[in-house]
Amino acid sequence: MVESLVNPEDLAFSESERAAVYRTIAARRDVRRGFIVDRPLPDELLQRLLAAAHSAPSVGLMQPSRFIVIRDLATRKEVHNIFEEANLQAAATYSGAQGEQYSALKLEGILEAPQNLCVVCDTQAARGHRLGRHTMPETAAYSTVCAIQNLWLAGRAEGVGVGWVSILDPVRLRAVLHIPEHILPVAYLCLGYVDQFASAPDLERFGWEKRVPLSTAVCYERYTEETAS
């Protein structure tokens, strides 16, 4: 066995830099409220966030993610109407106390955030020459999810709130944003400066769900059915 001439610890960032990374991860929030309506993001900041997303890992270096920046209020109103209808349909699937709780949740900031961002994926992109996609073609979409997480963390580090709106009819969203059939909509995001970041996720603070410890999600050597509850 050849002994390494490099001390692995020398490759790590400084303690303060590592702390900043972990702090950003812990402080990231799905923001639905508190957007500062009259303060759009400067172009240079938006470009930094998009660059962070574009730098995300992608299978085969295919870089399948595309970013649609939406600032026009009329377009955002169209998307908000799609949300309203989808949200009513979702609310109808709950009843009793849970139904009341669902209706009280704030689940989007489409009109409040001065800019929205639709992140889509070209799942058939020629870049990467299909490396890694022969057996798992869905990794193209996974790559776009990595891009979204990059943007989310960069946003938190910059003091920018990001909220993911998943309660949307993708067919109608395609029509509004002119997304062709071969392009997959992955995320519709609201982003902008906010008046604060919550100390805990909204769904936890308002009693919809609670976090579970890491120990309930980790298996060793093989999968086990001991799931979190």
Rank of each mutant, 00 (worst) to 15 (best):
N116P: 05
N87Q: 11
S4T: 12
L11H: 01
I167M: 11
W164A: 09
M136W: 14
Y193N: 08
V2F: 13
E17C: 12
I68R: 09
I36K: 12
A92S: 11
A74N: 07
H80S: 10
Q63R: 15
I68H: 07
R32M: 04
G192M: 05
G34R: 01
Y220T: 15
E108A: 08
A12R: 14
Y220N: 12
L107A: 06
S199T: 08
T75C: 13
S16I: 15
A141P: 00
L11A: 09
A147W: 08
V59A: 07
Y102D: 01
H54P: 01
S58W: 08
P42H: 01
C146Q: 04
N150D: 04
G99F: 06
L105T: 06
W152C: 06
G161Y: 02
A157Q: 12
Q101S: 08
R28M: 04
L151T: 05
Y22T: 08
K210G: 08
R71Y: 00
F197Q: 12
Y193V: 01
L184N: 04
E204W: 15
A228D: 05
V176W: 09
Q63I: 10
F206G: 01
E138Y: 12
L61H: 12
C146V: 01
L11K: 08
I70Y: 02
V171C: 06
R174V: 03
R39L: 07
V120C: 08
P8H: 11
E84Q: 12
C219G: 02
Q115G: 04
R130A: 10
A20G: 13
N81L: 11
T216V: 06
Y193A: 04
A126S: 07
A12Y: 10
L189H: 07
V31Q: 01
N87E: 03
G96W: 03
N81A: 14
M62L: 13
E204C: 14
V21I: 15
R28P: 03
S166E: 09
I167E: 00
A126V: 14
S4H: 10
A97F: 10
R76T: 10
S143F: 04
A147V: 00
V171H: 09
A51R: 10
I183A: 03
N150A: 08
D38N: 11
G128T: 04
E108W: 11
E226C: 07
L50N: 05
L61S: 14
P180Q: 02
D43K: 12
A92F: 09
P42S: 07
R66Y: 11
I36N: 00
I70F: 03
P213N: 08
A157P: 01
T139Y: 08
Y223K: 13
A187R: 10
L50Y: 08
Q196D: 06
I36D: 00
E112M: 03
D169L: 06
F197H: 09
G161I: 09
V2E: 13
R222Y: 10
A53T: 09
L73Q: 11
L49T: 00
P170Q: 03
R156Q: 15
A217I: 12
L151P: 02
C190P: 00
V186I: 15
